[in-house]
Design a protein around this nucleic acid. Structure first.
Lengths: 232, 232
DNA sequence: AACGTTTTGTGCGATAGCGTACAGAAATAT
DNA sequence: ATATTTCTGTACGCTATCGCACAAAACGTT
């Protein structure tokens, strides 16, 4: 299995021997945009360690479009909750950024958890970060404006893609934030007028990260900090 | 240690021998209203298994009053995240309903986790439920009206107190929901006009649970269901 | 080149909740 | 008995966002 340093910061927390053991059970697969790779309350089919791909965690709500509750990129994994001994995914997982990911059969992953306590420890810390992130999102949706939240998500997404180009329409961003498309157009229009971003038909360029941070609610910054605290 | 059946549904999941082992390390303590028993990002001082008390989990937010992200009553515990090997509490815990709780030193709890795999398994399921609940709250704050959310919280609280009397002012409820006090007064006024509740100066009577459920966003019902699914 | 589709801009009335303020009523303290 | 504090009702302007609709522009397809 080809593996380069800095590929997957989460796995890199592991001792080299454990890492190579685990990679033996992985396939490097291509994930396509909009692919649903886990459904809420259904058993995981595979476990994924994104490399260049990234994944949206969605919460379906009756009478509304699903809302995004988290993002998983190369610093994370899909399927961590399996360590709790429950086979079902607690949310829907949709490929937001096409790219590559290491995939692993569920059984192999469970075997690896039992065999390698170093893996379990990493997962513990990762799970803790996810708890903190999720609770922050509650406060963020309650208190912060669409524009601030949009700025935060753009920064988050930007960290996951590997260019300055984010490929999302206003419609898609609206779904993530759980707001109207036209609300995103207005917010994005303002960010563009401020020359922080630049967009056209589903292609968003990040022009000024510092400026975006200033417009964001700070949830982005805190979020990065919380992750770094566990995985320095 | 005095212990009656149905005292703490969470602990009752344990085999009797394990349960009595654990209770040996517990004190039955009285928790007072507004007492802060864990602070965000600070080490837990004790672990708690509420008996008649219940506890609010709060997320502090800059420039806003803290918002409630979850409730812990006799069906849960404070400190479950210790099983992830991290000593800090991921949120602030405030006593919302005065009453009794079994408290346990952190070290003893960690020892119990290592010694009793049955305890760990229960905690795993409990942690899973908390993840699901938290993500639902995200969608709830985003999509549902103050009145519907108020109805849901009242039902939740009602499950935790042991009478039909809920002791909270509009101000306190507003803090939980992260909205203005006057918004709660309006919502509560409507629920009262519909004869679902009845209140005066911090004392709320639940008159009609069925009616409240109809006014609620359904997040209450789903929440109960998700818990029951793990701890039938 | 013509057509349909997707994406974005924009407008406008409706609405929920904010922010703030004030007043009356009930409880508590002096 | 009086004063003070706490709790609730209410009012009013303000703002963000909804909900919907329509148009223009860009793109893709045949």
């Amino acid at each position: 299995m080809p593996f380069k340093a800095r590929d997957t910061p989460l796995l890199e927390q592991l001792p080299p021997r454990v890492l190579s053991q685990i990679l033996k059970h992985c396939d490097l697969v291509e994930l396509n945009f909009n692919e649903i790779i886990a459904e809420k309350d259904k058993p995981y089919k595979k476990v994924y360690f994104p490399q260049t791909a990234f994944i949206s965690l969605m919460q379906p709500v009756a009478a509304h479009p699903a809302i995004e509750i988290g993002l998983i990129g190369k610093e994370g994994m899909l399927g961590a909750s399996l360590m709790l001994g429950i086979m079902e995914s607690p949310f829907r997982a949709v490929v937001q950024g096409p790219g590559t990911a290491y995939s692993m059969p569920v059984r192999d992953f469970q075997w690896a958890i039992n065999k390698h306590s170093s893996l379990l420890k990493v997962l513990y810390r990762y799970q803790y970060v996810q708890i903190i992130q999720t609770t922050r999102v509650i406060a963020c949706t309650q208190f912060h404006s669409v524009e601030a939240r949009l700025a935060s998500w753009l920064l988050l997404i930007h960290d996951h893609v590997h260019t300055d180009l984010i490929q999302h329409t206003h419609d898609q961003l609206a779904d993530m934030l759980g707001v109207l498309r036209s609300a995103v157009t207005i917010a994005a229009g303002d960010l563009q007028r401020r020359k922080l971003i630049n967009y056209a038909r589903g292609k968003i360029n990040i022009l000024d990260r510092i400026g975006l941070k200033d417009m964001s609610c700070g949830c982005y910054t805190t979020s990065r900090y919380d992750y770094a605290k566990q995985f320095s």
